[in-house]
Design a protein around this nucleic acid. Structure first.
Lengths: 153, 153
DNA sequence: GTCCCTTTCGAGAACGGTTCTCATTCTAGT
DNA sequence: ACTAGAATGAGAACCGTTCTCGAAAGGGAC
């Protein structure tokens, strides 16, 4: 029963419902993983999660848990610059946001963009994609730079 | 000496010079890889390249070639939704562009955005990142959608 | 051309993150 | 309690990628 972070009740309820719809249980491990993701400032790697959960969770269970949550649309899977998988709560739980990526240490941090800009971007994205015949379902912006910590070296 | 695609002379010259600066040769395999990347409509996986080069290039050589070209700043390494590596010519050879990603088949295609939009985005990106203390070095936009081929199913 | 030095190459082993297998344990509903 | 389905833990298997090492090739000096 690992749990380092506390889980906001609204997310708790939403996830429990979503899992219930799929005849899946909201087990302690799943809850702990969701809690860590909810508390994180950006998407986490499985290794990050193992560290934060105190390695009480076996590797295979963690991956399976993440796969289950992914299939249930609760988490979203991305990949960082090194190609390793990172998980974050899905947009309907976490809100629409983008990523700031440090080219030095690889840290990924969530950022939100003011709504006006966001709708400008959405319009642009729709237009561009339509010209190529794609049916747009979303977009993702990664801003690359050097974080303050890495800049000091 | 695999070569399926022809290499534009301007790229040819630029790459040859860049390699020469690093005391590296522009061997047939390297040329063939660059030619394939130059001819592609989007970033390619090592597997894509092996296929296009007719498997005349051994896996280890391909990866080494790509690493060499990467170190020389000739190609750029990204990762697709499945986490596998994709290579494309670096921006100074290929121009600044973004990616259209098909959520169905995983295909990645280059798209260019009109210059006004691009500078709007650059301004936004700079502003947002500065607020977080990051020193911005670039940005990347992936537009997710369904390609026409996948939409037909 | 031939020698030498360095770079490149090919084949296969090694690696590391992720997934799979399977036997065991848990849980909810009866 | 009993049982069927779900979840778990340990380890093997997988697969994309990197490393190792001996052989081959390129380029300059003579």
């Amino acid at each position: 029963m690992p749990s380092t972070a506390t889980l906001p009740t609204d997310i708790e309820r939403a996830v429990r419902t979503r899992l219930g719809d799929r005849a899946a249980r909201f087990t302690p491990t799943r809850r702990a993983v969701v809690a860590e993701l909810a508390a994180a400032e950006g998407p986490l790697t499985p290794a990050d999660l193992l560290r934060r959960l105190g390695a009480r969770v076996p590797v295979s269970s963690l991956y399976r848990t993440l796969a289950t949550l992914d299939e249930g649309g609760i988490v979203h899977r991305t990949h960082d610059a090194e190609g390793i998988t990172r998980f974050e709560l899905a947009e309907w739980l976490n809100g629409h946001h983008h990523h700031l990526v440090c080219v030095g240490c690889g840290e990924v941090r969530d950022i939100e963009i003011n709504g006006d800009w966001e709708s400008t971007i959405a319009a642009l994205v729709g237009r561009v994609a339509a010209a190529s015949g794609y049916a747009v379902s979303g977009h993702r912006i990664d801003i690359e730079g050097t974080c303050t910590r890495c800049a000091e070296n």
